[in-house]
Design a protein around this nucleic acid. Structure first.
Length: 875
DNA sequence: CAGTTCACG
DNA sequence: ACGTACGTGAACTGG
């Protein structure tokens, strides 16, 4: 057997050291990871260099130790362990266990004493010892056989304290370190020492006298000095300090050297912890075999004839799509598994087999999927009504953590520790290189996705239950996906010729503006290029530079607005921008999205994307169709009902976010304002400007409105000053006055930021979560951003909860009333329907009633409705 | 593919 | 002292 080597680590001091040495990293779940990361890098390095045969990480047990009996204030005045560090200890322990390294702590003793005791025992057995710590306290243990390593700056930079090194550095032997501390004290442990004696003096004295005891025996011979007086006056304290600094090498440990054998890491377990903490760089460069190992084999069949009993009662089902545009693309195949039987069904079977179709439509056959909405929509195009979906990995993952990015099964499954799915890119290639692989390869890929869904279901569901989010997922998002799918499949009709006519007119106007702009500029250039435009405005024409971007001059609208009076060209550019935007995005862009078959646009509502719980809309985005300016608003004339004799019907929540704020903050004044049914901006103006309702000018109301927005966004004086174009001081005064009038809001905002710091996340009315790891950042910008987010997300997210719930309720109600009216669009606080004229009267009553009672708040919800022949007229 | 701008709530 | 309002998507430029 080779030479034994014992490696002893001081867990607490290393964790502290790493925590303060490294920036405050965190994973997607908002758990901070820097201390564990630093510890890991140090550990990896030391394992490689030292190749120990025995190992132990020692921890401090509790607050009080035997040293406190000597000196009550030992380690007094220490800052409490920051919560960002405390939360890391469980992970640190998990990691150490994964390495199969022994951990130990002992009541009333510190890690130092455990280490000292074991070091001396090992020495007697002629075993080499290496001690690693984050501070120098342990250097007193250094001998011929015991090396003490202390980490410097980073974590992997190490200073070796051998007796020779200590001799060189201090001119003392290791054991004299204790005497040195006795004389000079140690501020971090609150060891007093002798006041007025520092490192230099202590070393000088010890070189002469050897030990504190010896020094005091011979002190009479010392020549008179201030120092001598101090030493005499503090003899007791010096001796006590030495005692405190002395590591106990005879601690009553219940662990022996034989228990410390180190068998090497459990690589799989270590990787598991690294993945959880997202130590991506470590995973990549680790020589652990796991990442490279072949994914576990999965046996599957390719099924072309559907037997009667092929489908079991509960299965994971995956519908593989050509691309993300599920309203237009093809199905590539189907994967199924019930955990023991896994098979692939080629797309063609859909035409041939009634059984496959009825399986999808059979409500009693429970299906676990990922992105049920996509499957529902594409199957609908094949005349199939998907039913019985009980689990959706995409939605469940989103509820667990909306920050999880990526919507393919491989990425999602990975989040929950299942890695045996290849990326789509690896299977198909990307961009121009995209190609269908052989059926065998495709089948395996699709089957693996189904298997991944099956494997993750339990874990994700448990996580949801643990977070008390199962209801949000199961009773809100899951049924909502079905409704959104219906809305998307239904689509909204677009009158292309209306758009084309508008496009013609725009083209003329844009051409005219172009010529005028070139004339005023004295040359032609690309007006759409901020870079070229900047040169014209700020160099050639010499206009004052108001704002800069990273890359040059800002030519954004708010800047140009301020330059209007400086030069005629500015106004023309603003007009050009407005029209060019309409033309490219809303005329040309929209026309491209109209399906020729039905003259409709079928947007995709992204249900697992935003960090607040809102939906988003793409291809086309129907949530940002112009309305604020009349020119743009006319675009809405092109959106029409899909049948003659039908109308578009719109219902929108009035001030939903401020009402949510009133509810959540319970601010008396704000609640009262809504209960009285007042115009909230006017009311805010009355409070902030101390005037009566009749004396509120339109400017005051405008300012008050901006303040209200600011409150929702997580107010800052700077932001408000930018918005209102006033000084920061004035903006600050507005805010102050607002908070004086609505103290409950102030209190709520303070509390929510506190809560976010404590828990690492904020929640909405229906317990949707958003993690905010940056809330404890030392970086002002990151932290401020997280604080504003903490204030905004519960408001924006709760409003999203409310309208989502309303969509479920309205869908149920339309069905139960047997109405033909169809919900088509959602625009954050607004629902758009189409309905036969004859149903309008009913809708006028039903829709507000249902929306207003979706979730009951401490203040009433108010819904305004309108309808007309086009979306434009539904105003 | 990042940066800028601008449309919406 | 720090330098931004919150949440999105699309079009365009230019490296």
């Amino acid at each position: 057997m080779g030479k034994e080597k014992l490696l002893l680590l001081d867990g607490n001091s290393l964790a502290y050291r790493a925590f303060f040495a490294l920036p405050l990293l965190s994973n997607d779940n908002g758990i901070h990871t820097n201390a564990v990361y630093g510890f890991t890098t140090m550990l990896q390095k030391i394992l490689e260099e030292e190749q120990p045969t025995k190992m132990l990480v020692a921890f401090d047990a509790g607050k009080t130790t035997f040293r406190h009996q000597t000196f009550e204030e030992y380690k007094g005045g220490r800052q409490k362990t920051p919560p960002e560090l405390s939360e890391q200890f469980p992970y640190l322990q998990k990691l150490i266990d994964a390495y199969r390294i022994k951990r130990y702590e002992l009541e009333m003793y510190e890690a130092d004493d455990i280490i000292g005791t074991l070091a001396r025992q090992a020495e007697k057995e002629n075993i080499d010892v290496v001690i690693v710590s984050g501070d120098k306290d342990l250097t007193q243990l250094a001998t011929e056989k015991v090396k003490v390593y202390v980490t410097r700056k980073g974590m992997t930079d190490i200073e070796q304290y051998t007796p020779e090194h200590i001799q060189e550095k201090y001119g003392l032997s290791p054991i004299q370190i204790i005497d040195m501390k006795g004389l000079m004290g140690d501020a971090s442990d609150n060891i007093p020492g002798v006041p007025g004696i520092g490192e230099k003096t202590a070393i000088k004295l010890l070189k002469e006298y050897g030990t504190i005891e010896n020094l005091y025996e011979q002190i009479d011979e010392m020549k008179q000095s201030k120092m001598k007086e101090k030493l005499i006056a503090n003899e007791e304290q010096a001796k006590m300090s030495k005692q405190l600094a002395t590591i106990n090498t005879n601690a009553p440990i219940e662990i022996s050297l034989n228990d410390l054998n180190y068998p090497g890491p459990d690589q799989e377990a270590v990787l598991e912890v690294w993945k959880e903490l997202q130590f991506k760089s470590l995973i990549e460069k680790s020589d652990f075999e796991i990442e490279e190992k072949e994914t576990a084999t999965l046996s599957f069949k390719i099924v072309r004839e559907i037997a009667e009993d092929l489908f079991t009662d509960t299965m994971a089902v995956h519908v593989e799509l050509e691309n993300e545009h599920y309203h237009t693309c093809n199905i590539l195949g189907f994967g199924f598994t019930d955990g023991s039987n896994t098979f692939f069904v080629p797309t063609e079977v859909l035409q041939k087999s009634e059984r496959l179709k009825s399986y999808f439509e059979d409500e009693t056959k429970k299906k676990y999927m990922s992105d049920l909405k996509a499957a529902q929509c594409i199957l609908k195009r094949h005349g199939i009504n998907l039913r019985g979906v009980e689990f959706d990995l995409l939605l469940a993952s989103y509820i667990v953590n909306p920050a999880i990015s990526g919507d393919d099964v491989a990425t999602l499954a990975k989040e929950f520790g299942y890695t045996d799915v290849r990326s789509n890119e690896a299977v198909y290639g990307k961009g121009a290189k995209w190609a269908l692989p052989s059926e065998e390869v495709l089948a395996e890929h699709v089957c693996r996705k189904a298997f991944a869904i099956w494997s993750c279901k339990e874990r994700v569901s448990n996580k949801l239950k643990e977070n008390e989010q199962f209801d949000l997922y199961h009773d809100l998002e899951l049924p909502l996906a079905v409704i959104l799918g219906k809305m998307e499949s239904e689509g909204i009709k677009v009158n292309i010729s209306t758009l084309e006519t508008m496009g013609q007119e725009l083209e003329d106007k844009i051409a005219k503006l172009e010529t005028e702009i070139y004339e005023l500029a004295g040359e032609t250039f690309n007006i759409n290029s901020p870079k070229q435009l900047g040169v014209i405005l700020f160099e050639k024409l010499g206009l004052p530079v108001i704002k800069k971007t990273k890359t040059g001059y800002s030519t954004a609208a708010d800047v140009l607005e301020k330059l209007k009076s400086e030069h005629q060209i500015v106004q023309l550019i603003l007009e050009y921008r407005t029209l060019a935007k309409l033309q490219s995005t809303y005329i040309e862009g929209l026309i491209k999205e109209v399906h020729p078959k039905d003259s409709k646009v079928h947007t995709r509502f992204m249900q697992a994307l935003t960090s607040t719980g809102r939906l988003s809309s793409t291809d086309p985005n129907l949530q940002n169709i112009p309305i604020r300016l009349e020119e743009g608003r006319k675009i809405r004339k092109a959106f029409v009902p899909s049948h003659d004799g039908w109308l578009l019907f719109s219902a929108d929540y009035s001030q939903i976010e401020l009402r949510v704020l009133a509810h959540m903050s319970k601010d008396k004044n704000l609640v009262e304002a809504f209960n009285q049914g007042m115009d909230i901006h006017t009311r805010t103006a009355m409070e902030v400007f101390h005037v009566s309702q009749d004396d509120v000018t339109s400017n005051m109301r405008r300012a008050a409105k901006a303040v209200n927005f600011g409150i929702i966004y997580g107010i800052s004086d700077y932001g408000l000053s930018q918005n209102l174009d006033i000084s920061r001081k004035e903006a600050g005064e507005f805010i102050e006055k607002y908070f004086e009038s609505f103290p409950g809001v102030k209190e709520y905002m303070d509390n929510i930021v506190q809560e976010a710091k404590l828990k690492g996340y904020v929640t909405t009315i229906l317990n949707r979560r958003r993690y905010l790891p940056d809330i404890t950042s030392k970086n002002f910008n990151l932290r401020s951003f997280a604080e504003r987010t903490a204030m905004n997300t519960p408001i924006q997210g709760s409003a999203a909860d409310i309208i989502k719930k309303a969509m479920l309720d309205i869908d149920a109600r339309l069905n139960s009333e047997g109405l033909q009216a169809k919900l088509l669009l959602q625009v954050h606080d607004e629902l758009i329907f189409e309905a036969p004229k004859e149903e309008i009267e009913k809708l006028e009553k039903i829709v507000p009633e249902v929306m207003e009672s979706a979730i009951l708040l401490d203040v009433p919800l108010k819904v305004d409705i309108s309808y007309g022949e086009t979306w434009y007229d539904a105003k």
